[in-house]
Design a protein around this nucleic acid. Structure first.
Lengths: 352, 352
DNA sequence: CTGAAAGCGCTTACAG
DNA sequence: CTGAAAGCGCTTACAG
């Protein structure tokens, strides 16, 4: 690689040392704000740094200390607003902790994920936070896990792995949402979106079933309509549900984008969401409150979870971690208009 | 920082050299796939690498060659789906070019941007791609620009800077969209969203005015309703427009999220978008086609633009660049239902 | 085709 | 309180 045009040898601590009339050890010490250095000396060095436009070479320091301040941030799908929000939460926390994030968007590609994991290791990242691509196996992570490189998994569990995990409490979040629908008078409630191969879907479905079973309501497989966890998937899933013998009066969706896709498909058929039918999502992405009608959903506290994952990783890097941690963040039901709560009397819905 | 638990000194090229019975120079050469090395020797070295589980230390190599493969990727607002898509385009291209992205989301904070720029320089990034935070001045970038560090600005121009720029042709994109609205019979067309302090808004407005002026239509300041470039801003802007003496029959919006916010606000008032009124956006984010009704918009080819910016940066890093480049990507009008094109006869609209 | 040597820019005991 | 020395893991002319 060519040197930047016009630049000669960059200035280093020895240049500073010479200019300030001290040794490079002393310069290094002032750079670390060591209390050992006399104020007068420190100022002299700082002046030289200023005058020569010195820029600290962190790469050199890393080689010497055999440690870097990089953390790998591997996101399964950055185009998905939920994961974009997660990324923002992680990124912000990483900087605050004095680290710097190397990004990789795997786009759900396990092979790309494997490559990126190897590359990050070569760059000497201090640790990795990863929302695993769909289909990631514990086996494929074993090479990197634990001893080799601190790592925390977030948002999607990988079964059988012994890596720390941070994510929302999907089961209780879904249960609470469905209980709300039941309280509103709904009896035929379907689950929309995702596939049973996804741990997150299974967790949310079990919350749904908890609530239905507890209320003595039907909750068999015919009430779950699987689809891709996307807006288009949401459309397809509702459309399938509309063809069923007993049409649901409400839907709990795998996530917000499924719910949004579903509500639009419903609207196009003249079915008024929040009145003719209830729809609730999961995640509370920014878009949810701006949907028409505003979406009732389960707030996963996505950003905070990202920040939490960063802190768990730090504990692991610093060796202050209890080793293996699993954290299931509490969720919060956010009632807006799509479930009909705000302007539909319960009575109407019971007869639905 | 503590060493990872349980690990001792990591294996280096000298370990490999010893195991393979060669010098470390030879090991280095096989790592670079040098043709100088005899096949038999290469295999022996590769076997040792495999057996000892050697991992290449890129940091050390960087120190030696005084160059890294990092590129800084500074995004003004990753929560905005438009910029998330840009980030995905850049990230993908960076990896393909053999580089690795360090991410920073400035969240429109110029101070954070300044910090991040300094930090990235200390990490020795080979270059930077940045969508500048609102309010970024050429002055604030001067310290980093050009000689110090290759840098390309994307999506938002910073006036007075001499940095390379890559973005969509906002003016012609907006003009084309408005021409389409005029062809549909609209006469009172308002511009919604953004502020005149944003170069992008000014460029899009000038395209709007070009089209209006050419058709001999009114296009004064009273037809532009400024707001934050967000969904909430879109709501506010349409609401303001609804209070004006002569209500517009169509809207060209600063971007898609403004258009989406506006269409939802309209829908809530019983105004049917695509029938009672036309709405067109700009960007073509993923959400646009899933809006209700699907949004007519201007495709900015966001991902491709991100990839292009990465390539411009590479040329600069490798010194093969013509120095300063400005690229205005062509746009494409995507006609869906929000403008009324697909199912509203022109006649109805003229009388509106 | 391969090896010995120098050096990239730092940090960190160790002396003094 | 400050300096001299060693060394982190590579690459790259230069010899041979």
């Amino acid at each position: 690689m060519a040197e930047p045009r016009g630049s000669r040898r960059p200035t280093t601590i020895v240049d500073i040392a010479r200019a300030a009339g001290v040794s490079k050890s002393t310069v290094s010490l002032v750079l670390k704000a060591s209390p050992l250095i006399k104020a007068e000396t420190r100022e002299r060095v700082e002046r030289a740094i200023e005058q020569l436009g010195y820029v600290y070479n962190r790469g050199a320091a890393s080689l010497r200390t055999a440690s870097t301040s990089f953390v790998g941030m591997i996101i399964s799908d950055l185009m998905n607003p939920f994961f974009a929000e997660l990324a923002v939460g992680i990124e912000d926390a990483i900087y605050k902790l004095g680290y710097v994030p190397i990004l990789a968007n795997t786009n759900e590609d396990a092979e790309r994920q494997a490559n990126v994991l190897k590359t990050m290791r070569e760059y000497g990242v201090a640790g990795i936070i990863m929302s695993p691509a769909r289909g990631t196996t514990a086996w494929s992570l074993a090479e990197f896990a634990g001893v080799t490189m601190p790592m925390v998994i977030t948002m999607r569990r990988v079964e059988g792995s012994e890596l720390s995990y941070v994510g929302p409490d999907n089961r209780s979040g879904a249960r609470e949402a469905v209980e709300h629908l039941i309280r509103l008078g709904h009896r035929d409630i379907a689950f929309l979106g995702g596939f049973a191969t996804m741990t997150t879907q299974r967790e949310r479905i079990s919350g749904y079933r908890d609530a239905m079973a507890h209320a003595g309501l039907r909750h068999d497989d015919e009430l779950v309509f699987e689809s891709m966890p996307t807006r288009a998937g949401g459309r397809e899933a509702v459309e399938a549900s509309l063809k069923s013998a007993r049409r649901p009066t409400a839907y709990i969706c795998y996530n917000d984008i499924v719910a949004i896709g579903a509500s639009h498909a419903l609207a196009e058929r003249g079915i008024v969401v929040g009145k003719d039918v209830g729809v609730v999502g999961f995640d509370d992405i920014a878009e949810a409150q701006h949907n028409a009608p505003p979406l009732t959903t389960v707030d996963a506290h996505t950003k905070a979870l990202g920040a939490y994952a960063a802190n768990v990783l730090m504990a692991q890097i610093n060796g202050t971690s209890p080793g293996f941690v699993e954290y299931f963040g509490s969720t919060k039901l956010v009632i807006r208009q799509s479930c009909g709560a705000s302007h539909v009397p319960v009575r109407e819905r019971i007869s639905a």
